[in-house]
């Protein structure tokens, strides 16, 4: 049995992703949560690279880590939220939440039982679907209308954010 470097990386990244995701929801300090979430995103980007989706990996970092999470951090820092600002939730509710989430995971995984697990993901020659050239062509030919529409969505979101954030 040979272990490829891809497999090693997969397990490392998976553990990292799950651990940091858990830390996101268990950290008392919101800033820590943000940083752990960034770590999760990095692990997911690593997965993208393993899946040879280079473009998405980079975009994930630029958009999520570089822009979205900075916004979160901004908001948290400006509001000066510390661990004291979040009052403790009822322990039973927490338990219920955790159990419900666990049940969901269990049920979903169980439902995979009957799935044929023959499908595998390997690197093949010419499998450059995640490369920027191919995606770019696809994006600007087949999906050009949604692309343009999403730009309008962006614009309206920007205007909306400015309007909401403005002090009366």
């Amino acid at each position: 049995m040979t272990i490829t470097i891809t497999q090693i990386l997969f397990w490392i990244l998976s553990v990292a992703a799950l651990f940091s995701a858990l830390m996101v929801i268990t950290s008392k300090n919101p800033v820590h949560s943000v940083l752990w979430l960034i770590a999760t995103f990095f692990s997911i980007s690593g997965h993208y690279i393993l899946l040879s989706a280079q473009f998405l990996a980079v975009v994930n970092i630029i958009v999520y880590a570089g822009a979205i999470m900075v916004l979160f951090l901004f908001v948290i820092m400006l509001m000066n939220l510390n661990r004291e600002t979040e009052p403790q939730k009822n322990r039973w509710i927490k338990m219920a939440g955790a159990i419900a989430g666990g049940c969901l995971l269990l049920v979903l995984v169980a439902s995979l039982k009957n799935v044929e697990s023959a499908s595998t993901i390997e690197d093949v020659k010419g499998g450059d679907v995640g490369f920027i050239k191919r995606l770019g062509k696809e994006l600007f030919s087949t999906y050009v209308v949604p692309f343009e529409i999403s730009s309008i969505l962006f614009l309206s979101a920007m205007v909306g954010a400015v309007v909401i954030g403005k002090k009366e």
Binding site: A100, G101, C103, L104, V107, L108, S111
Partner: peptide, 10 residues
């Protein structure tokens, strides 16, 4: 919602 999802899946 989550509980309903669990039930539906079950």
């Amino acid at each position: 919602m989550v509980l309903s999802m669990v039930i539906i899946f079950l």
